[in-house]
């Protein structure tokens, strides 16, 4: 890490104040902060996934993962979330081109796909509940609902951020760099997607 401080080109006499613009590494504060946060989130989801892995077989004589999961449904919703990452990328690229119309369009599509995913999850949870698998039924069910629920909350927060961003852009009220704001939401969104890639494989596809 010793070579991070590479150059001394920070201009301390530009008109907009030194600290706001030139950072010594030349990278943006916001993006660095977001990546640090995502690094931290790895340990959050790691803990939840480990808890599930430890407890996935502990359902006594009740329903276990093999009987419960509806793989076709989850495959479709996983696909939806994956494709929302593509639309997010398109939004980020549009924002970089300063193309507000397309930025808003792709942000809205991404939010919609995310909402679809959350909807599928709500449907899935309800279906499980009707099959007699509730939050407190077994260690398996508690850890399953906790893990996927945390992920669902992350997606929901993402959806809110996306839609709020659409509203803020269309009213032209962005405080700061618009393209970067969209990119930050994008990073968060892709991360949530990548976590689902892991959950989909480890929880749903690999047989317990």
């Amino acid at each position: 890490m010793a070579d991070i401080a590479v150059h001394e080109s920070v201009t301390s006499h530009d008109d907009h104040g030194p600290a706001a613009h030139g950072s010594i590494t030349g990278i943006s504060n916001n993006k660095l902060a977001m990546w640090l946060f995502l690094g931290s989130e790895c340990l959050l989801f790691g803990g939840l996934i480990s808890t599930y892995m430890l407890y996935r077989g502990r359902h006594g004589s009740g329903v276990g993962p093999a009987q419960l999961f509806d793989i076709p449904l989850t495959s479709v919703s996983s696909f939806v979330l994956l494709m929302s990452s593509l639309t997010m990328v398109l939004a980020v690229n549009a924002a970089k081109r300063k193309d507000d119309r397309n930025t808003n369009l792709w942000l809205a599509v991404t939010g919609l796909l995310g909402a679809l995913f959350v909807g599928a999850q709500v449907y899935e949870f309800t279906a499980f509940y009707h099959e007699g698998v509730g939050f407190t039924t077994s260690l398996f069910s508690s850890s399953f609902f906790t893990l996927t629920g945390f992920h669902g909350v992350h997606v929901s927060i993402g959806v809110i951020m996306l839609l709020a961003m659409v509203a803020i852009i269309s009213r032209n009220k962005v405080a700061g760099d618009k393209a970067e704001a969209v990119e930050m939401i994008g990073l968060y969104w892709h991360f949530v997607d990548v976590v689902w890639v892991v959950i989909f494989t480890l929880v749903y596809l690999i047989p317990a």
Binding site: H7, T11, A20, H21, T25, G26, I27, E180
Partner: peptide
């Protein structure tokens, strides 16, 4: 961290961030 060096000329970019 060569990537930083390459972009030092762009010191006046918005937020000093390399693109």
């Amino acid at each position: 961290m060569n990537t930083v060096d390459e972009h030092t000329e762009h010191g006046h970019h918005a937020h000093g961030a390399e693109e």
